[in-house]
């Protein structure tokens, strides 16, 4: 475990700082637009961390799906929210202290547990692209789940259209 401070370590600390900062901002920012942009920072940071974990394909997917898809979707939703600039209207604080207390307690419990957890840590293999292996796995044991997920996505699209459609009498 003991080693020199390598370049990879530096990148990790940088990325994790960005990720944590983004999460903090997303969780605590009053302005909903700002929160979503902080979330973007977190997503990007996690994508970078995937790269650091030599999961290159995941990094790409994270960027495409989350940053490209989910986030844009969220921004649309935010734009529909009226009176964004008045934070107390658009993003009223509910149980702020309850939330912070729960988060803090959760963090305390998780942290104290995980710090002592004796993970069977193998030495990490060298950095190498893993996309090919992932592809083989996906068409191997992951094939049935893949089909199921395809079906799920189809259902989700139809369901979302049905739910979000302007039904008669809603206007």
């Amino acid at each position: 475990m003991n080693g020199d401070f390598t370049l990879a370590d530096g990148v990790f600390w940088l990325l994790s700082a960005a990720t944590a900062l983004g999460g903090l901002g997303a969780a605590l920012s009053r302005n909903i637009v700002r929160a979503v942009f902080f979330l973007l920072l977190t997503f990007a940071g996690v994508a970078g961390l995937y790269g650091l974990l030599s999961a290159d394909f995941l990094a790409a997917v994270q960027l495409m799906v989350y940053v490209g898809g989910v986030l844009v979707l969220m921004l649309f939703a935010v734009m529909l929210t009226s009176q964004i600039d008045q934070a107390h209207q658009s993003n009223p604080v509910g149980s702020r202290w309850l939330g912070i207390a729960c988060g803090a307690a959760m963090l305390a419990v998780l942290w104290t547990t995980l710090v002592r957890a004796p993970f069977l840590e193998e030495s990490a293999p060298a950095y190498a692209p893993t996309t090919a292996e992932l592809g083989h796995t996906l068409t191997g044991i992951g094939f049935l789940p893949l089909l199921a997920v395809g079906l799920l996505l189809c259902a989700v699209i139809v369901g979302a259209v049905v739910v979000a459609r302007r039904g008669p009498g809603t206007e």
Binding site: A8, S16, T19, G23, A27, G94, G99, L107, E121
Partner: peptide
């Protein structure tokens, strides 16, 4: 050097922030 523990702890931090965010907000 950075190992499994670091990633796991970072993920714990993110998770706690997520929980706090989901509870504290009404939007």
């Amino acid at each position: 050097s950075v190992g499994l523990h670091h990633f796991v702890l970072l993920s714990a931090v993110l998770f706690s922030l997520g929980i706090a965010c989901a509870i504290a907000r009404r939007n």
